[in-house]
């Protein structure tokens, strides 16, 4: 048995102990997400337009992550709508930034690994960098949207008479609590995954200016800051959708 299979089994058992049926669903959502991610790469390798393929699979990935979580129907629908809007926002920000910074492809630090590989493969790597940045933000956006939507849904179901204005205030309060820690998840994930790169920079005496303008570092930094922007904008967008729905509900109740 390989290590990946063994670790997967340990995780599955632990998830079943903690979550029962929900544990199995959460585990499956990770497996299916992996399948979709890999399939996305294969489609791009077949020369389908990278950005469009990424956006389509992002919507699927978001829906799996959100609808297979244990959030209530109202909360998960709201979270999904909000995260798709955030996804569009991310795409709008990331495309000009990536073309401006030109961080696509590989840096000098990758030379050793590229040995023996042909890099003239006819796929625009700037677009691949855009795809990478979009994909790496999905989990964080989905998580924030679920957390805020669930919190608001709880409030709505407990106080039916709450006004949409009051709900907006509550949403911002919940959002503030969530963001403080969600930002840590993102940044530690970033620190962890680029630890080797930082040690490399330090070992080779890169100056601050060299690090900031380095292709590999800039690519990672842009991806993480874009995720941060996604997570932060999730707060008002989720809250806005939730209070819009509440307003509509109140209106239809008035008519009756």
């Amino acid at each position: 048995m390989g290590s990946i299979t063994a670790l997967g089994l340990v995780l599955l058992v632990l998830m079943i102990i903690v979550g029962g049926k929900q544990g199995i669903t959460s585990f499956l959502s990770m497996v299916v997400n992996f399948g979709i991610l890999f399939f996305t790469i294969v489609l791009i390798a077949f020369h389908l337009p990278p950005i469009i393929v990424t956006i389509v699979s992002s919507v699927i990935l978001l829906s799996i992550t959100i609808f297979w979580s244990s959030a209530s129907d109202n909360a998960s629908t709201t979270a999904f709508q909000a995260s798709v809007i955030v996804l569009i926002l991310i795409v709008v920000i990331i495309i000009p930034i990536e073309y401006w910074a030109q961080v696509g492809g590989f840096g000098l630090e990758d030379s050793e690994e590229l040995e023996g590989l042909s890099t003239y493969v006819g796929i625009n790597f700037t677009k691949i960098a855009i795809a990478t940045a979009i994909l790496s933000s999905l989990g964080a956006v989905a998580e924030a949207a679920i957390a805020i939507a669930s919190g608001l849904d709880e409030i709505v179901s407990q106080h039916q008479a709450i006004t949409s204005g009051q709900l907006f205030v509550d949403g911002t309060v919940i959002g503030k609590q969530i963001i403080g820690t969600a930002v840590n998840t993102l940044f530690f994930g970033f620190f962890g995954s680029s630890l080797a790169l930082f040690i490399w920079f330090y070992g080779l005496n890169y100056s601050f200016g060299e690090i900031l303008n380095d292709k590999v570092f800039a690519a990672e930094l842009i991806a993480i800051v874009v995720s941060l922007i996604g997570v932060v904008t999730t707060i008002p967008i989720t809250t806005w959708i939730m209070s819009f729905k509440l307003k509509r509900l109140h209106k239809s109740q008035l008519k009756e």
């Binding site: 979550g19 929900q22 669903t25 959460s26 959502s29 990770m30 997400n33 992996f34 990935l61 992550t65 959100i66 297979w68 979580s69 244990s70 994909l135 790496s136 933000s137 999905l138 989990g139 964080a140 989905a142 998580e143 679920i146 957390a147 998840t185 993102l186 994930g189 970033f190 995954s193 995720s227």
Partner: peptide
């Protein structure tokens, strides 16, 4: 579930 997916995507 959602939290594991955050790191998975990163």
């Amino acid at each position: 579930g959602p939290l594991i997916n955050v790191l998975f995507f990163i």
